[in-house]
Write a protein that binds this DNA or RNA. Structure first.
Lengths: 328, 328
DNA sequence: GTGAAAGCGCTAACAA
DNA sequence: TTGTTAGCGCTTTCAC
């Protein structure tokens, strides 16, 4: 590998001058600069960011660790984060923990060891243990989506309580009475929040929310399939199903489709997260849409703020409102 | 930041002994090992992978650069690559070029400077210029999806010619006669390949493929919307639309839904790439599915092969067959 | 505007 | 089993 010294020799300058040229330092005489440029081109020199990073304790990399790349919500988050990171002249690297706590732990360890400039983490349910201690305290950490207990860090999340409440009200106004709420990880704050909105809407309408109609799951496609199958097997079927996220909605839609159920005539389906891209027109699904793009962007801004402003500041929490979209 | 020397002092050993403990080198007496472990825990020492990388010229990172995170195909690729990379003890970092050649160039520059251990690249249409030269020749590069002209590297792709051909035959057997083929980037090899399969199926059935019915685009959602609108505005509408990828299918479905077109009764829609997750039951869409997971995995295996076997080997091309799925 | 010296934190090679 | 020396490639500091 050709190094800065090779270039220096070739251009007949000192290594530091090459460094200045590479980093666009102004104080280099144009003629010298040109000579160095020439040498760089001739030798096909590619600066070594590892060495630079070691010296400067900066990598220019910000890591986004998500639990599930198949989630359209996290994809939107990634897009927002990517744009914001790029605007700051850094590079966003996305890593998938695939919702496996062990993966999460090892990924955190890795990005910590690599001294990335910042970390945005969508925590797994078991995140708390092993997060602190795996990354240097000097690296800004921003949590996204929900606050893992015991993790003191900035947080960006969305108020899905209100969203779910509004969605359920809509369904009730449409005449639905037996509404099932399904699919989130039991005891996870997000699931409880969404169930909370659901309960409030039902209570307000004088509908008794039966615990049988609140069925937790794993937030995954398969969970939607299984729970839908269970619901279809009941003697009294629900007339509406609200899913905790998009993947569960996919599973439900799949299972209902297979059973020949007409949506929404026989059973209406609503979802937190928009399971379909950009538009719901043809789907006839009311959805609670989280502003993923903006959330990703906000998370990056929090990271950069800590980077710039010397890290002393109490943790901040940014809560975005959800947007409820109903088919026209 | 606490360093290896701090730990060494604390455990009263030399830095190299700490290094051995950290790297699970066997030749450390258990008692010493324990003492070092203790010191590491007490000081909350996190090894510096930047320094290690500088010394060893290995980062343990493999980069996957995709053009579009919203594409379900690339998400599958990422999942396959991730599993394979993790199995090798390394970490996959995913970076989005967002189909912007400038981004692609700067991302390649960045991962090249950071000396990642391998690069899997989904090239943008304009990839050729600026790829070579931005990354050290010592870093294994594997192209995925299509072969950017002028880039000598291993390649993993899928035969969508046959897939599209079979899909179109299916539509013709269903009685479709005016089939539009839409949405791929003009002149891109993948688009031409898919158009080729389309033409072959029509020719074989004695249907004259009109150039008017072959409408290129941008592979994006908006493209699907625009082209669908154009097709709907014609005095003679097609009775089937085949899209070049999932995002275009989304756009088409959206536009047709908005216009109240019944699918497939009035217009059938088929797609290269499965626009829906895991299942097409409820969608009634025939699709050409590329084995993204396996392709991602294969790409990683090519990278690792080059890493292990000392890089001298002519470029290899792995072509996967597509799977055609028609609604039952 | 340019350079010399030193050191970022780690580990390979060799020595004990 | 453990330690010493040296150096990976770069940039900071200070001097000229």
């Amino acid at each position: 590998m050709t190094s800065i010294d090779d270039v220096a020799r070739r251009a007949d300058v000192s290594p530091i001058t090459v460094s200045r040229v590479v980093n666009n330092h102004p104080s280099v005489r144009p003629a010298t600069r040109e000579r160095v440029r020439q040498a760089i081109a001739e030798l096909n020199y590619i600066p070594n960011a590892v060495a630079r990073g070691l010296k400067q304790s900066r990598s220019g990399l910000i890591a986004l660790i998500v639990t599930n790349l198949s989630s359209p919500f996290f994809v939107e988050v990634a897009r927002g984060a990517d744009d914001a990171v790029r605007a700051s002249g850094r590079t966003l690297i996305i890593i998938n923990s695939n919702d496996v706590p062990d993966n999460e732990a090892s990924v955190l360890q890795t990005v910590g060891e690599h001294r990335v400039d910042g970390i945005i983490l969508v925590p797994t349910p078991e995140a708390a243990n092993g997060v602190a201690g795996r990354i240097p305290k000097s690296i800004p950490l921003v949590l996204l989506d929900w606050k893992a207990p015991g993790l003191e860090a900035d947080l960006v999340r969305c108020d899905t309580w209100t969203g779910t409440y509004t969605l359920c009200r809509h369904l009730i106004e449409q005449g639905r009475r037996r509404i099932a709420m399904i699919g989130g990880s039991p005891d996870s704050p997000n699931w409880l929040e969404r169930v909370g909105g659901y309960r409030a809407a039902l209570n307000e309408a004088g509908i008794a929310a039966s615990d049988d109609d609140i069925i937790p799951g794993t937030y995954r496609f398969e969970s939607g399939i299984e729970i839908a199958a269970e619901l279809l097997g009941r003697s009294i079927r629900p007339d509406a199903i609200v899913t905790a996220n998009a993947q569960v909605a996919w599973g439900v839609l799949d299972r209902l489709g297979e059973a020949g159920i007409r949506i929404p005539e026989e059973i209406a389906v609503g979802s937190v997260d928009n399971p379909l891209p950009h538009s719901v027109y043809w789907s006839r699904l009311p959805v609670v849409e989280q502003p993923g793009y903006e959330m990703g962007k906000a998370a990056v801004e929090l990271v950069i703020e800590r980077l710039d402003c010397g890290e002393e500041r109490p943790p901040r929490e940014i809560v975005f409102p959800a947007k409820v979209i109903v088919p026209s």
